[in-house]
């Protein structure tokens, strides 16, 4: 039998040196809400788990003048309770409310959610609207990557061996006035079939800027740039008619991942209706 071990480093420096010692068989464990079921199901077979929960400095949610920085061990529940997130990043607060149930939220972390890169994640679409980036550290130094580049496909990212994510940073000036988040799931507490985050600014009833992202049965969560760019400048009341007129949303069509009864047709229709409805909610301040 192979030897396996859980390691409990206290500082980031220790984390990095453990990574070096353990080599490829090491995985970081944060809240464990995705990783532990994966191990139980035999879908992941790490030799070493490097547990981040003893690293006190990774728990913080920090505000600077221009950013909010969410530490690797900040749980979804902590994000829900953070007044800074509630006030300054409402879209993230809306999305966090939709993550599973308290059992999962109390331990699952936002950074772990991003690293797990589930296309159905609730948090990733909201973070895409915030142009968030992930901050990675390895023994060779630091780098920050936009989430849109970090996540490459279902459960895959550009994280490198020996690298640990220390935080996700959201730009405050990217936050718009109007925001909404909606999710379609098969039952309460489930991962989404289709999710949509919208953040908008309007001026004199005209759309000034728009960010729309979607997740769910897609290769990965994406920004719907082809709709975004076409609705800027439109009067708010014309948005729905515009969406209804779009035959196919190219960006979505290119990344749909049909699965069994969730056919392409079902998914395209659902995404287009969901975007329309989320936009409407955002405009009416819901």
């Amino acid at each position: 039998m192979k030897q396996s071990k859980v390691l409990n480093p206290k500082t980031l420096a220790e984390v990095l040196s453990l990574f070096e010692q353990c080599g490829d068989g090491a995985r970081v464990i944060a809240g464990g809400q995705s990783l532990v079921p994966m191990i139980s199901l035999g879908l992941s077979e790490p030799d070493f788990l490097i547990n981040l929960s003893s690293c006190d400095d990774l728990f913080v949610i920090k505000k600077t003048r221009k950013t909010i920085n969410i530490g690797a061990m900040a749980s979804v529940s902590e994000i829900l309770n953070s007044s800074q997130v509630i006030n300054l990043l409402p879209i993230l607060n809306f999305a966090a409310k939709k993550v599973a149930t308290p059992h999962v939220r109390n331990f699952g972390t936002l950074v772990g959610n991003v690293c797990h890169a589930d296309p159905s994640s609730d948090l990733i679409p909201a973070l895409l609207c915030l142009d968030a980036q992930i901050d990675l550290v390895s023994k060779d130094g630091k780098r920050s990557v936009l989430l849109s580049e970090f996540i490459t496909g279902p459960y895959s990212t550009t994280i490198r061996g020996g690298e640990v994510a220390v935080s996700v940073t959201c730009q405050l000036d990217k936050q718009s006035k109007l925001a909404s988040y909606k999710k379609v799931a098969r039952r309460a507490g489930d991962l989404g079939i289709a999710t949509c985050a919208v953040s908008l600014d309007s001026h004199k009833d005209c759309i000034e800027s728009a960010k729309i992202s979607v997740g769910g049965y897609l290769r990965k969560a994406i920004r719907v740039l082809d709709i975004e760019k076409n609705i800027v400048g439109l009067p708010a009341h014309e948005i729905c008619t515009f969406i209804d007129g779009v035959e196919k949303i190219e960006s979505i069509e290119n990344s749909i991942l049909p699965d069994g009864s969730l056919t392409n047709n079902y998914l395209s229709a659902t995404f287009s209706r969901l975007i329309r409805s989320t936009l409407k909610d955002a405009l009416s301040g819901k």
Partner: peptide, 21 residues
Amino acid sequence: GACTVLIDGKSAHSCCLIATT
């Protein structure tokens, strides 16, 4: 949820946590 326990007062699925952590 059959395995629910409280950790520092918060509900958790104990099947999704590694004991040694």
